[in-house]
Amino acid sequence: MTDPLLIFDVILGLAIVALAVAVLAMHDRFAMIVLFIVFGLLSALAWVRLSAPDVALAEAAIGTGLTGALLLTTLHHIRATPPAPVPVPAGAIIANLGLCGLIFGGLVVAFLSTPLQAPGLALPVAQNMEASGVAHPVTAVLLNFRAYDTLMEVVVLLAAIVAVWMVERGTAQAPSPVMGEIYRGFARLALPAIVIIGTYLLWVGAYAPGGAFQGGAVLAAVGLLLLLSRLYRPQPAHRPLARLGFVLGTAVFAGIALLVASGGRVPFEYPAAHAKTLILLIEGMVTISIAVTLAALFHGREPEYASVSENHK
């Protein structure tokens, strides 16, 4: 236990757990979200310690930054009504506390029994890296070995925007684009993060043609700032273009996956000579779709003619 980094890990781990408790216990909802953002950033830091920079980036940009923005804009929308204090019976709390304690105990026992630092699929990935068409292992898994998963993940994102556009409609007021203190508070948090993440992505791009999701998130952040600063206002006339942006990634990804399947090849089997180009093309289109979709998820509602007048008061 002389390694100072291990002490750092212990402190970081404890801080993360404490923050998780604090997020749920914090009475004020704004403070709750801010604590959650701190929690997310510390988790990302822990993942850097576990040599998972790609994951840390995705968590910081998407899981924390954009999720935090979504939470804040929702809070802004609903904060007119303070939460009604619904008393939870003490018995229910104790019972659930006991249940979750048991689950925690059981999972810890199970976790300690696993072969930590097992090789997993690292070896097959390394053996097939040559054939994958990319240099970065995580990108190879995402866009080649398990490309089907990644396609379905983009489909999830598409389902989300379809559902969100469907849900929010009618007479409700759109969230005000100018968000005052919340916006400024968030911008202070987010802007440096965007700069840092953007720079890192540029740097990492030199040897890893990866980061569709992280890149998309950074672009989405730009979209958020455009929306918040009213530099861009969604118009009903822009809907066809937006829809095209949402489906672009899925369509190109699925299209390429199917089109390569000829001459004895199966779907998703990129011809070796073109693998790199095709993956780059997919990544580019997916990045655009992710950026547009995430920004639209933040904006929330489908821009409709009926609600235009409301926005102009």
């Binding site: 576990l50 040599s51 998972a52 790609d54 994951v55 995705a58 968590e59 998407i62 899981g63 954009l66 999720t67 979504l70 090789p119 997993g120 699929l121 690292a122 990935v125 292992p137 995580v138 190879a140 898994v141 995402l142 070995f145 398990r146 998963d149 990644t150 993940e153 999830v156 994102l157 389902a159 989300a160 925007i161 559902a163 969100v164 849900v167 999701f213 992710i290 995430l294 998820l297």
Partner: peptide, 23 residues
């Protein structure tokens, strides 16, 4: 070097989770 497969899974999970959160 770490095993890249779980990293890819977690990135997928993060994107899936923001989609669900947004809805």
């Amino acid at each position: 070097m770490p095993d890249p497969v779980p990293h890819a899974l977690v990135i997928t999970g993060i994107v899936v989770m923001i989609s669900a959160t947004a809805v």
